[in-house]
């Protein structure tokens, strides 16, 4: 269990490291070009890993509806946006606002899609996040 707790925290740190590295690259290039390198380097690494351990192209994907492949292009815009934001508002603001947007939109998605949805805690959570964002924006 301890190892999994550490892994989960490590995953969060990796997200931050990735954003910091892409931000540095975009400083010397542009956010979109940095996003291109991010994807081609990740693709190469995963190809090597997949060839080593197998299971890169399983049987299931023949039935995948075409729109499920849209995650990749969305990711390109997301990574570029992260670099762009990092240069403008810093790492902590970027991380917090993206998390806030992810949580609120996740609640909306769950509301429409999920079978089990708890409205009360979600509403309290959304209110706290929006309050934090208002505090960030409004300055004395």
């Amino acid at each position: 269990m301890t190892i999994n707790v550490l892994l989960a925290i490590f995953a969060g740190i990796l997200v931050g490291v990735s954003r910091q590295l892409n931000g540095r690259l975009s400083l010397s290039t542009s956010p979109l070009v940095a996003s291109f390198w991010n994807h081609i380097v990740g693709f190469t690494a995963l190809t090597v890993l997949g060839l080593a351990i197998g299971g890169l192209v399983p049987e299931g994907p023949r039935n995948v509806p075409w729109f499920d492949y849209i995650g990749g292009p969305i990711g390109v815009v997301f990574v570029a946006a992260g670099s762009w934001l990092l240069l403008r508002i810093g790492a902590a603001n970027t991380a917090l606002l993206i998390v806030g947007g992810q949580m609120v939109s996740g609640v909306l998605l769950d509301w429409f899609l999920a079978d089990s949805f708890s409205p009360a805690p979600s509403a309290i959570g959304v209110a706290l996040i929006l309050g934090g964002m208002a505090l960030m924006h409004k300055r004395a």
């Binding site: 729109f67 499920d68 492949y69 849209i70 995650g71 969305i74 990711g75 815009v77 997301f78 946006a81 992260g82 762009w84 934001l85 508002i89 603001n93 970027t94 606002l97 993206i98 998390v99 806030g100 947007g101 992810q102 949580m103 609120v104 939109s105 996740g106 998605l109 964002m133 960030m136 924006h137």
Partner: peptide, 17 residues
Amino acid sequence: LLAAFAAGGLLTLMVHF
């Protein structure tokens, strides 16, 4: 502020797909 918030929305869509 809005761009970052929207990026979080993109992340939700990306994770979903």
